[in-house]
Design a protein around this nucleic acid. Sequence first.
DNA 1: ACAATAATAGTAATTGTTATCGTTTAAAGG
DNA 2: CCTTTAAACGATAACAATTACTATTATTGT
Lengths: 126, 126
Amino acid sequence: MKYSRQRELILKTLRENGIHPTAEQLYEFIRQEEPTISLATVYRNLNLLAENGIIKRIDGLEGTTHFDHQTHDHYHFICTKCHRVFDVPYEIAPNLAESASKETGLNITSYDIAFRGICKDCQKLN
Amino acid sequence: MKYSRQRELILKTLRENGIHPTAEQLYEFIRQEEPTISLATVYRNLNLLAENGIIKRIDGLEGTTHFDHQTHDHYHFICTKCHRVFDVPYEIAPNLAESASKETGLNITSYDIAFRGICKDCQKLN
DNA sequence: ACAATAATAGTAATTGTTATCGTTTAAAGG
DNA sequence: CCTTTAAACGATAACAATTACTATTATTGT
């Protein structure tokens, strides 16, 4: 993997962002600083970074994939109204992958937990 | 909601299917019995059934939505090789939505837990 | 500095899904 | 029954998210 300014910018922007953006959202943000960047470049690098374990994909939302700079297993809260994704500072069970593997006999390598509901900002708007 | 032969067939087929198929997979299967059915009808009815709580959507896979005839909260195992979705007969924590709500202060209404790994069939093929 | 090759921008193509629209069909009342 | 009405249909166009393609540019090792 060869260095590129665009990839560094993508990673830096993702790390500074708290809501785990989509490729499109990142693209719109980065465009302000780097107007010639291509949407394809954002997608290409996000996938590349995720494949190399540097960032993490978050599926589980309707249609669009989000990206997270934190790679360790943790939980998310997805607002069903504004569709933003937040980290959940709460742990159900430590070593969940291992204990679930033992219990079920399945070869579990990772997991995703997504909680859904209306976030505090969206609740205020009612 | 008015009765339709197509909807009944979709629901019946989903209930008989163990791997929680996508709309496309259901469509291909149903076509054998009902060759004139439209893919749009499959999508329309799966969404309608899910909105009415009769079936459940499973997001969380790369891109494609799967559907599940079981509506109560339960966990899934997604094979990262063949992309089939299986039920996980294992419960981490009862009343997870409520306890996580209390713990975090978030207004959690539902959740999804997806384990990932290689299923037994795919392990055999190596 | 130069060759080799990875990465880029721009855009076309693909894929999963939804919307549209004219036609068909199930349910309810006369 | 027969008619009316609205829901559902099939076919296909439209759409949105993502990937593939291609000619050009940038990075790295020598």
